[in-house]
Amino acid sequence: MQHDLASMIKEKKLFLLDIDGTVALGSELLPGAADFLYTVKENGGIFRFLTNNSSKVARDYVEQFHDWGIETTEEEFITAGTYARDFLKKYYGNEKILVAATETYCNELRKAGLNITDQAEDDVDCVLCAYDTELTYEKLVQVCKQLTETKVPWFATNPDLRCPIDFGMVPDCGSICRMITASVGREPEYIGKPAPGMVYACLEETGCTPKQTLLIGDRIYTDMECGKRAGVDSCLVLTGEASAEEWKNGFRCQSLGKLVGYFS
Rank of each mutant, 00 (worst) to 15 (best):
D160G: 05
P188G: 10
G168V: 13
L161P: 00
Y131Q: 13
I78H: 14
W154G: 11
T104I: 14
R178A: 15
P164N: 12
A120M: 03
Y91K: 12
L203S: 12
Y92Q: 10
L147D: 13
E121G: 03
Y190G: 00
Y92G: 08
I176M: 11
F65N: 02
A130E: 11
A130I: 07
P196L: 10
T79V: 00
V124M: 05
P153G: 06
K151F: 07
T157H: 08
T157K: 04
T206K: 09
D172I: 12
S175C: 13
A182Q: 09
E121P: 00
V62C: 01
A130G: 13
C163A: 15
P159S: 07
L114F: 01
E108M: 04
D132E: 11
A120S: 09
A156K: 04
E187F: 05
G168S: 09
C144E: 14
Y137F: 15
K89S: 02
V99N: 08
V62I: 06
E205Q: 12
D122A: 13
D123S: 12
G185E: 08
K151M: 05
D118S: 13
I78V: 15
Q142S: 11
T82W: 01
V199N: 14
V62M: 00
I70A: 03
C163D: 07
M198F: 00
A195F: 07
E138S: 13
L135I: 15
E189Q: 08
